[in-house]
Simulated scan of single mutants.
Amino acid sequence: MATAKAANPTKAGTPKRAADVVEKVYRQVKEMAVEYRFRPGERVNEVELAQKFNVSRTPVRQALSRLVHEEFVTFVPNRGFYAREITPEDVRQIYEYRALIECGAYRLACQRATPEQIAEAERLWTEQTSTTQNSEQLGEADEAFHIAITEMAGNPHITTALRDVNAKLRFFRRIDLENPTRCNKTYDEHAAVLECLKRGDPEGAEILRTHIVMSSEHAVEVTKEGLARIFFG
């Protein structure tokens, strides 16, 4: 009996360790996909990734399968996994989708946000941007601000959807924020959204939509610059 009891923790613990490995590999590979370390259309080499992370191919395949569902990679039967392609129209449409999520969340936040939540979002944005030195840091602060507004809607499913969209746009968002005009508008429009939210003013949703949505022409510019960096450094 003693021997049987001693064996149980090991058996129970094995799946958990395997799940931990898959989760770790998933986070690492997703980060590579988010930052476009796989070039669009490039075949993802499972063997190289397994060697890189010192794991078998199984957790790599499981991680890549999750990323297929999240639209970061595609799978071609009998050929393998490929990095997602990206076009200006894709970028524009994802920004459009992001605007729908955030504007809906803003309207709910007008009904549900507390003064304390609004004050905290304002404090964090001011604190983060006071030490911002580059577009990457500003992009992180910008993401955090928009997540904070969305969380005030009180619906975690909306917040999860926005986090997924943010990951798809992160690379291009940083490029967009390198533009001084765009950067200055971000500060002004965030302030305007907060003031509307304090009053429970639905007009803030239109300010937010204008702030987010990208024109077709601008999407072409940002995507071209992004692809040039991906392929030519």
Rank of each mutant, 00 (worst) to 15 (best):
A205F: 15
V91M: 07
S216V: 03
E116P: 09
V25P: 00
A148F: 09
T160Y: 06
L227F: 03
R17Y: 12
A50S: 07
S215A: 15
T114Y: 07
A19R: 10
I86E: 03
V213A: 14
R84E: 06
I212P: 08
Y36P: 02
V68A: 05
A83G: 14
R182N: 10
W125N: 03
L100M: 11
K185F: 10
F232W: 11
L124K: 13
E46H: 04
L227E: 00
I212F: 11
V47T: 10
Y26M: 14
E225M: 00
K168M: 08
T58K: 09
F38R: 01
M32Q: 12
E221T: 03
A33T: 07
G139N: 12
F72S: 00
L169Q: 07
R173C: 00
A50Y: 01
S130G: 08
E206P: 04
T14W: 05
T160H: 09
P15G: 06
I118A: 12
E151D: 06
G80I: 02
E102V: 10
S65R: 12
E23V: 06
Q51C: 11
A4F: 12
V222H: 00
P156G: 11
F232E: 05
F75V: 00
I212S: 15
R182Y: 06
L64K: 03
K198Q: 05
V34N: 02
Q93W: 09
H157R: 15
T3D: 12
C183V: 06
R112G: 03
K5P: 06
I230G: 00
A7C: 02
E42W: 05
A219C: 12
R43G: 04
R182F: 09
E46S: 05
I212N: 14
P180H: 15
A144E: 14
R229A: 00
N179L: 10
D188M: 07
A83Q: 13
L124E: 14
T58F: 09
R229D: 01
Q137H: 07
Q137I: 00
A50F: 04
A63L: 03
N179D: 15
R84W: 02
R57H: 05
R39I: 05
D188R: 11
F81H: 13
R199D: 11
D188V: 09
I118H: 13
Q93I: 10
F53H: 12
